[in-house]
Structures are given as structure tokens and as C-alpha cells.
Nucleic acid binder design. Structure first.
Length: 220
DNA sequence: GCGACAG
DNA sequence: ATCTTGTCGC
């Protein structure tokens, strides 16, 4: 089990430039034909340099689980804010490549990232498919407090530009940070998150993927 | 210098 | 993210 080496300042500068290149490839417009299946992607960490990535595809209307996959992955990079993709993309990609879907959602940011290259953007560009980010917390930017009813949202702005939305998925509960990953408009991303959210704060695809990854971790 | 900081 | 059951509050 190779150790996770802490990258140097120079390495991070290099990776930041790589993210800027990824950001240029992101298409923040709807390039999606069908919307019949939605997949959720997540990773669980037991401890150390091993983790479990999972992807689950659900029927867009019924939210029934159609396909799912979980894989064990070696971690090669530490968690460093704004560099999350270098820790999680590889494993997430392996799980997602085995599960076909019209759109993939990730429990992290998309364009709502300092260099507009959150994990959801990296995944979308790598898969060349529509993706969106639906995170529990904020990474950058600011927004007004959205109204308390389900469906209410306010725009998340960073450095003068709209990078996402702060969306209330359940009345009174803390909002979710939604942003475009790739090949989707922010409006469509919000629509998808709301449509796939039922009795919990987070959308079902993410909940299923999280359970799947956690179960794989506990048994593996 | 002092916080903030996806998972 | 993860270690962890019941419990205070709306």
C-alpha cells in the first residue's frame, strides 16, 4: 500500500493550471437528449489509503434502481480543499464507466469552484457526458438565504459570476449547493435535483450511491 | 496575520 | 469523509 505523499506547492500550482484547462472544456449548456436515467456517484473512506467508489443508475421517473456498481480503489492523493478531484476522480470514473446513464450527479461542486473545475466538471469532461454537482456545503462564493419552501433557491456568485444555486430541497432544511458539471444548464441541473429529491435533503441517486459505497466499505 | 475550506 | 445512540428541539 503505497503512502499518500503530500504534494509540494509547485505540484499544486501545476495541478491548478491543469484545472484551468479542464474548466475551458466545460460546456454549461444543455447537450442532453434523453432524460430517462440518472446516476449518483460517491466514495466512502474506511481509513488509510483505500476507499470504495460506487455508482447507481435510477429510472428518472420512478427512481427505481436499475444498475449499480461498487469498486475498491487506492487513494494516491490527500484531501486538499479545491483539489478534491485529484483524490476522488480516478475511483469515481471506474465505478461510473460501468454504469450507463443519461446524466451523473456527484456529491461535490461543479463550476462552484475557485477555478471552475470541481469534481463534477472533471467527471463530466472525462466521461464526455452530462454531470452536475449537488453538495452539502459551500466551497466558494456567496448567496442570499433562499426562501424556506421546497424549490426555492438563490444564485451562488463568486468573483462576479454566477457559479451555481443554493437550493432548498426540503422545507426548512439546510439548502443544497447545486452547480453545473458538464453539458447541462444550471436551470436543468436544478430541475433534476428537485425531481430526484423525495423525503430527504439529498437526491435519491446520491443517497443510493452513498449507501452502496458504505456497504462495500463495511463488508470489504 | 486571521479565518474559510466540496469530501 | 469517519468514529457513534440517544436525544433536545421545532
Amino acid at each position: 500500500m503505497l503512502p499518500i505523499l503530500k504534494p509540494s506547492k509547485l505540484d499544486l500550482d501545476e495541478l491548478a493550471r491543469l484545472q484551468e484547462r479542464i474548466a475551458k472544456r466545460v460546456i454549461a449548456e444543455d447537450r442532453i437528449r434523453r432524460l430517462e436515467t440518472v446516476a449518483g456517484c460517491d466514495i466512502s473512506f474506511p481509513r488509510g489509503d483505500r476507499a470504495y467508489a460506487a455508482c447507481a443508475a435510477l429510472d428518472y421517473e420512478s427512481l427505481r434502481v436499475l444498475r449499480q456498481r461498487a469498486v475498491a480503489v487506492k487513494l494516491r492523493f490527500p484531501y486538499i480543499p479545491t483539489f478534491l478531484a485529484f483524490r476522488e476522480l480516478e475511483g469515481m470514473l471506474r465505478a461510473a464507466r460501468g454504469v450507463d446513464a443519461d446524466v451523473y450527479m456527484v456529491g461535490a461542486q461543479g463550476l462552484a469552484h475557485p477555478r471552475r473545475a470541481g469534481l463534477a466538471c472533471h467527471l463530466g469532461v472525462a466521461l464526455n457526458k452530462p454531470t452536475l454537482g449537488a453538495a452539502k456545503g459551500r466551497l466558494c462564493g456567496s448567496a442570499e438565504e433562499p426562501e424556506l419552501e421546497r424549490g426555492a433557491y438563490s444564485l451562488l456568485k463568486d468573483d462576479g459570476e454566477v457559479v451555481g444555486a443554493v437550493l432548498r430541497t426540503q422545507p426548512g432544511s439546510r439548502p443544497v449547493y447545486v452547480s453545473v458539471g458538464h453539458k447541462l444548464s444550471l436551470e436543468t441541473a436544478i430541475k433534476i435535483v428537485l425531481h430526484t429529491t423525495r423525503d430527504h435533503r439529498l437526491p435519491e441517486p446520491l443517497r443510493v450511491a452513498h449507501q452502496l459505497a458504505t456497504r462495500a466499505m463495511k463488508s470489504g
